[in-house]
Design a protein around this nucleic acid. Structure first.
Length: 306
DNA sequence: TTCCAGGAGAGAG
DNA sequence: CTCTCTCATGGA
């Protein structure tokens, strides 16, 4: 199956930017588990080639996939609105086509509970072991993977079993939330109906979900582009490039929303991935190089700070 | 060996 | 409200 005429989209940047933990690159293709099936996707220019491990009804599958990849949104327009200075301009040019995915809600909740005080490769390992143990075996060609565990599976296992998957102290947080989903105390369906701040607060009512994880869920699953997950990297970026001083999360959040506007979540994802790709992102010569090659000024944010 | 990672809870001030 | 300490794990 193919999706034609896909403009301003990069499969590579979208799947490798740390918002999903479930994609693996094999040659030119990406294999990932999405809602109970393996998808194999590759991009040739403006064409996406897609295979699924199950038989799909094209009439519903293509719109589903387009939504998952956020292809229905006018992303260039949104990015133009957050292009406020040379630095963000540079990150957007460098990572042109990166989209924010619309991921399945329960998997996103569970995955980002596991992400706290953890690194990406280890998060991926924990999710892989949980899926092998509690998920369903899936196959496409020679490629084998496992579906993400249901809330029921994680709610009814023992904490010892979760610990054996490497969850560490996050095991009880994961299981508490799984049980809340099963009991209806945390309704996934109603979460999807709530505006950003109400959904965020409902998530933060759970033990183990703080402000950062709640924002990840709001941004990567619920489509709230005003959500701003502030991790150690985003804090570092805003303190170094914009505020030029040590700042609290509240100060960073207030500045970022006023500066970038309602698309701050997209801006954040470009900044986050860019500094991971460029270890010298904060070097003075790197910054002056960026300023020299665009019509924007890196100094423009001083007027916003003051 | 120590430090760090897409943090959050609990307690103190 | 803010600050600090601790939590389990493994790779660098």
């Amino acid at each position: 199956m193919q999706i034609q005429n896909v403009k301003d989209f990069s499969l590579k940047y979208t799947l490798e930017s740390g918002q999903s933990f479930r994609w693996n690159r094999v040659g030119e293709a990406y294999y990932g588990v999405v809602e109970g099936r393996i998808l194999k996707i590759s991009q040739q220019g403006s064409t996406l080639s897609v295979e699924s491990s199950i038989s799909e009804d094209e009439a519903t599958f293509v719109p589903y996939l387009r939504h998952y990849l956020d292809l229905e949104r006018d992303v260039p327009k949104l990015l133009a609105e957050v292009t406020k200075d040379a630095y963000i301009h540079r990150t957007i040019q460098k990572l042109w086509g990166m989209h924010i995915l619309n991921q399945e809600l329960w998997e996103t909740i569970a995955s980002f509970i596991l992400s706290q005080n953890n690194n990406v490769s280890r998060i991926r390992g924990i999710i892989r072991r949980l899926s092998e143990r509690y998920g369903q075996k899936l196959r496409i060609g020679e490629y084998v993977d496992y579906s993400f565990p249901s809330a029921h599976a994680l709610a009814t296992t023992t904490e010892t079993e979760l610990l054996a998957c490497g969850t560490g102290y996050r095991a009880s947080y994961l299981q508490d939330t799984a049980r809340a989903v099963i009991s209806g105390d945390l309704s996934l369906a109603s979460l999807k109906q709530l505006p950003y701040l109400e959904a965020k607060q409902k998530l933060m009512d759970r033990k183990g979900i703080g402000e950062k994880v709640a924002d990840c869920i709001c941004l990567f699953s619920l489509g709230h582009l005003a959500a701003l997950p502030i991790d150690v990297w985003i804090k570092r970026i805003f303190e170094t490039l914009y505020l030029r001083r040590r700042a609290t999360h509240r100060e960073i959040r207030e500045f970022a929303y006023n500066y970038f506007g309602g698309g701050v979540g997209y801006a954040q994802q470009y900044l986050f991935h860019y500094v991971h790709e460029c270890p010298d992102w904060a070097d003075a010569e790197h910054l002056s190089l960026i300023e020299a090659e665009t019509e924007f000024s890196t100094a423009s944010y001083k007027s916003v700070v003051n």
